[in-house]
Write a protein that binds this DNA or RNA. Structure first.
Lengths: 133, 133
DNA sequence: GTATTTGTTCCAGTTACTAGAAGGTCAAGG
DNA sequence: CCTTGACCTTCTAGTAACTGGAACAAATAC
């Protein structure tokens, strides 16, 4: 099938699918007219990547996952390790964001938000310290 | 002072400071020998940006915050609005990450992680559905 | 007087696409 | 047969926010 169909089935924009080919992630055959010709297998792999990306895996991780996907003999431990690492990574990001949020909320709470120039947020950014919470 | 000193005081790498100049964020004077010459005010602004970046503000937001910082007549409401928007943004990211984590944890829990090829994580990525939690 | 550090510029690479231009192909309608 | 429009092709460049490295100049240390 053509790239447009592959795009519909996989849920990825054609542009992205072409990009994935350019980095050798999923490479289709070519039809006689030069058009990309996606097999069902190709489309499955595109969907696979789409899902993995939406779960936060990087392209390089997707490449690895794809090779495991293609390998009937893979050990599930290999895949599980990737998943667990990703979970750790996500947890770290969450903690970081929560700490950002706490700090910003504290600053915003102290800011009157009126039309006067006095602003604790700017003061904090400028290096002053906030005394109470 | 030279860029190295400015880097120490602001906590930013020299490379980054040069980059900030290249995008007209903080532009120092030049000394006779062509070296960048940072004033205290410049260094304060660099520190300001460093802190704002670490709080998750984008460069363009930093540019705006800097202009508010430089403007003695700004209204604190302007700054507060930025901060509140950023808090919302952070909250959305946290929710998204938590949902990713939940999904991945669920998948990992179902994966034995042994040397057998049977792997629910791959199955899910490939489009199969998981039935229980 | 040389060696080392610190500074300069400029170019390229990173991540994962996305936009747009210029042009080829194909199916349908008149 | 021709045109129209949808779809396809390639290529270049832009995004965000730096980071690394090369090649060379200036300042400092011994």
């Amino acid at each position: 099938m053509n790239i447009g169909q592959a795009a519909q089935f996989s849920g990825l924009p054609s542009k992205t699918i072409r990009y994935y080919e350019s980095i050798d992630l999923v490479v289709p055959d070519r039809a006689g007219n030069g058009y990309r010709d996606y097999s069902e297998k190709d489309v499955h792999q595109l969907s696979f990547v789409q899902r993995a990306r939406s779960l936060g895996f990087s392209i390089e991780e997707c490449r690895l996952l794809l090779s495991l996907y293609r390998d009937d003999q893979r050990a599930s431990a290999d895949v599980k390790r990737l998943a667990l690492n990703k979970i750790d990574e996500i947890e770290r990001k969450i903690l970081e964001l929560q700490s950002l949020k706490t700090t910003l909320s504290k600053l915003a709470k102290h800011c009157q938000g009126n039309n006067k120039p006095d602003c604790p947020i700017i003061d904090d950014l400028a290096g002053s310290t906030i005394t109470s919470n």
